[in-house]
């Protein structure tokens, strides 16, 4: 175990960095995607509802690993096919897109559910005061929805962090992929995967502790 840490320590830290980079990028875009499609689904515009539902169903209906293959291999092939011969996606780009789309779909559902959990009367009170739908949503409904959404959002963050390991299949050098390399070089499976497992766990437990604190602080106003 010590041998692995000595020889591959830097590599492992770099891999963890890649994992976190991919997670943060994906969460950022997923939040935007989630807000767009989540809000589409709470409104009463049939076209938006339809687009939102199709997106969420389509992405949730496909395993992340398939989505990753599709974006890493399928999409560039299609774009090359229409004449852009040199078009390629790096593993980080494809991974970020796949994970953002995946996490975004779940985020959209969390945001939709959170907004719908706020009593309808809140929106009506806002509208009756002359505020627009958008203003009532932004000033009255969403701030209250966020409180109920936070635990689910954090849960989704953690799932997304763990899902980065799936992107080892497209050759992205995140933690799990590096673990495979180390195991291939050393044949020390037990030790390697113990280290990798602990590294994930430390990050995730730290994050969930921090988020519990945040949750408590936000709820203190009540």
């Amino acid at each position: 175990m010590l041998m692995i840490l000595q020889r591959y320590g830097l590599m492992l830290v770099a891999a963890l960095g890649q994992t976190l980079l991919l997670t943060l990028l994906s969460l950022f875009f997923a939040m935007i995607i989630g807000m767009i499609f989540g809000l589409m689904n709470v409104g009463h515009n049939r076209v938006f509802n339809f687009i939102g539902t199709v997106y969420v169903d389509a992405v949730r209906g496909v395993p992340l690993i398939v989505l990753a293959y599709f974006i890493y291999f399928g999409v560039p092939a299609a774009i090359q096919g229409i004449g852009f011969d040199t078009f390629r996606l790096t593993a980080l780009q494809a991974g970020t897109i796949a994970l953002s789309m995946n996490c975004g779909a779940y985020m959209a559902e969390i945001i939709r559910a959170g907004i719908q959990s706020v009593d309808r009367g809140q929106m009506e009170a806002g509208r009756s005061l002359g505020l627009t739908y958008g203003s009532s949503m932004a000033l009255i409904v969403v701030p209250q929805a966020i409180r109920t959404m936070i635990p689910s959002i954090i849960n989704q963050y953690i799932i997304t962090l763990k899902d980065t390991s799936i992107l080892s299949v497209i050759g992205f050098s995140e933690l799990t992929n590096v673990g495979k390399t180390i195991m291939g070089n050393t044949f020390m499976a037990l030790q390697t995967w113990t280290i990798i497992g602990i590294m994930y766990m430390v990050v995730i437990v730290t994050l969930s502790k921090l988020s519990k604190k945040l949750e408590r602080r936000i709820n203190r106003g009540r």
Partner: peptide
């Protein structure tokens, strides 16, 4: 609607805001 006040059965105060903020928001 700015000129039509409405009072609801279930009050519909904005629960995340203080009384004064409830009143001054709009």
């Amino acid at each position: 609607r700015e000129n039509i006040g409405m009072v609801f059965q279930h009050f519909n105060l904005f629960n995340h805001l203080t009384v004064i903020k409830n009143m001054t928001l709009a």
